[in-house]
């Protein structure tokens, strides 16, 4: 299973493409794409660069980022794994 992700043009935030062609920050709302439809939808998404920059396909496993890029996409989804700079400053 795959889905399409990109960065939002206005602020760079991580976004995913929904089944209705909208873009969302929630992976849960993203379209789940079969292998045979993924490339065609990506072609459509790539034309939406007025909203989404650099659209590409990622693999999903159990509704989470999967495949060889699971960690990278997991960090994009959940944010840095470094902890809070503010918390570190006041520790």
């Amino acid at each position: 299973m795959k889905t399409i992700t990109a960065n939002r043009l206005t602020d760079g935030r991580v976004i995913y493409r929904t089944a209705t062609g909208d873009w969302t920050t929630e992976l849960a709302e993203a379209a789940r794409l079969d292998e045979d439809q993924a490339d065609a939808v990506l072609e459509i998404a790539s034309d939406e660069s007025h909203i989404a920059v650099g659209a590409y396909l990622i693999e999903l496993e159990d509704d989470r980022p999967g495949g060889q890029k699971w960690r990278r996409e997991g960090i994009r989804l959940a944010g840095p794994t470094t902890g809070s700079t503010h918390a570190q400053a006041t520790a």
Binding site: D11, V14, S49, V53
Partner: peptide
């Protein structure tokens, strides 16, 4: 933002001003 520049056209311009697009944000 209004579409007169594509990302391919804009990218070298933003980089000249120190603006990268990283994993989560600019």
């Amino acid at each position: 933002l209004d579409g007169r520049l594509t990302e391919d056209q804009f990218k070298p311009l933003r980089l000249m001003n120190g603006v990268y697009l990283q994993l989560h944000a600019y």
